[in-house]
Write a protein that binds this DNA or RNA. Structure first.
Lengths: 238, 238
DNA sequence: GGCCGCAATCTTGTATACTAGGCTTGCTTC
DNA sequence: GAAGCAAGCCTAGTATACAAGATTGCGGCC
């Protein structure tokens, strides 16, 4: 229980880490955005020491790029990285479903069903950001149900990185996770059909990947997206 | 290629990280060993700032425990953590073998064969530490062949943690990785039998787990090992 | 008119100083 | 004699100071 709580290293640093991470995942901070230590420190009312630690953790998560003597930026995953992340994600989520299926219970079902209901609700409200956030959370919640802290951490990491990847390659904030696909997983689990649940999850992750990284060839996609992004919004401080 | 190089954050810090990590993996620093920032800084000729960053990275890897206001120590994984790590490891290594099988080539075969030969050689020399290190390296090397940086990083992480786990629960420095099991994987790959290769790897990892965490009940094993270790060596600076 | 080089400025990398909080140890009291 | 408590020492948490390297804009040169 302490390794996963490493998220909070120590009060303030953990807060910055959490805020920044959420901002990146929510695409409030687009890839390439500079993250100067001074500015962030001023923003949060702490010294660079703290900010630095948070940035290092984000860099370890693959959400931020830190090259030596260069201002940290929100990471801009390459297509190769994107594929790698999805590959690992498929592998991990398969395992998650396998484990959850093995310890399935009504409590789990209720929790998951409630979550999917919340997703539905957000979608009906047309609340884009909430929909995205809940969709990502679905996977993390499910991972938590597997009862394996490390697996949970890894899933959290890849899910976050997927958000970033979709920010680079995907259409901005499309309904990346079709809620129906989540429900399919739930239903298969409820039927006690582990194989079907695994298949459903695998299909779902692959669909997310296709929706995000699918149709475009690498370099032009990369360049095109970058340019369109730079045209859309340039500097913008918080 | 930059995320995995995050290992070297910046020259000096990376060095300390690497040295400490290797020391932990080699069981030169037994679990529970205190790692005071001052002392390490003096040892390496850097300030606490650098040491701190290295320790934080090690903590993120699960090799070091850092509770607030408390001296960092080499982690002492619980049995629960141990099981979690092995579970994830099985899952990841399965994927590794699957991917390597798909891109198998004579070059890969030669590299792997050479590595196993080196393992043999070390075993014949009765060089315990080298045997252990090469055994762990086998898995990391194989992971590198999968062509997925993230997967490689995760495998490196779980393999390191396994070393630590064996330090706590296993007999000290037994031949944890039977070289024959490595060879079985290689042979299955060479036959082009992906399923067999996966099965061989899975069996291998499970055997490592059993050899390490298998027979004993948690608390007594824990305590016994700790005591024997403390009797063997107490403080000892490097 | 465009390109190259230089300088000013901004940021990071690292050490260190200071603060606050644990741990130890020795004393006191029951 | 043992248990509880208190004071001092030690160590981590954080801010800050300073040095070195990058970035950028300007001016001179071709």
């Amino acid at each position: 229980m302490n390794r996963s709580d490493a998220s909070q290293t120590s009060g303030r640093g953990g807060r910055i880490y959490a805020v920044l991470r959420q901002a990146v995942v929510d695409q409030a901070l687009p890839p390439g955005t500079k993250l100067p230590e001074d500015a962030l420190g001023a923003e949060f009312g702490v010294s660079r020491t703290i900010v630095r630690a948070a940035l290092q953790r984000l860099a370890a998560d693959g959400l931020v790029e830190m090259k030596t003597k260069r201002t940290a930026t929100v990471a801009r995953p390459s297509l190769e990285e994107a594929r790698a992340v999805f590959e690992v994600r498929r592998c991990l989520e398969r395992e998650v479903v396998r484990l959850v299926a093995a310890r399935w219970s009504d409590t789990l079902r209720d929790t998951l069903a409630a979550h999917i209901a919340a997703e539905d609700e957000a979608a009906r409200r047309q609340d884009g950001p909430a929909t995205i956030r809940l969709a990502a959370e679905f996977h993390v919640r499910l991972a938590a149900m597997a009862g394996n802290k490390l697996l949970e951490r890894y899933v959290g990491e890849v899910v976050s990185r997927c958000s970033l990847i979709l920010a680079v390659f995907g259409r901005p904030h499309r309904s990346e996770c079709a809620i129906g696909e989540h429900r399919s997983v739930l239903e298969a689990l409820q039927r006690g059909d582990a194989a079907a649940a695994i298949a459903a999850m695998e299909a779902h992750v692959s669909l997310v990947e296709q929706r995000g990284v699918g149709g475009e060839s690498e370099s032009e996609a990369d360049l095109g997206v970058i340019l369109s992004r730079y045209l859309g919004r340039q500097g913008g401080d918080a």
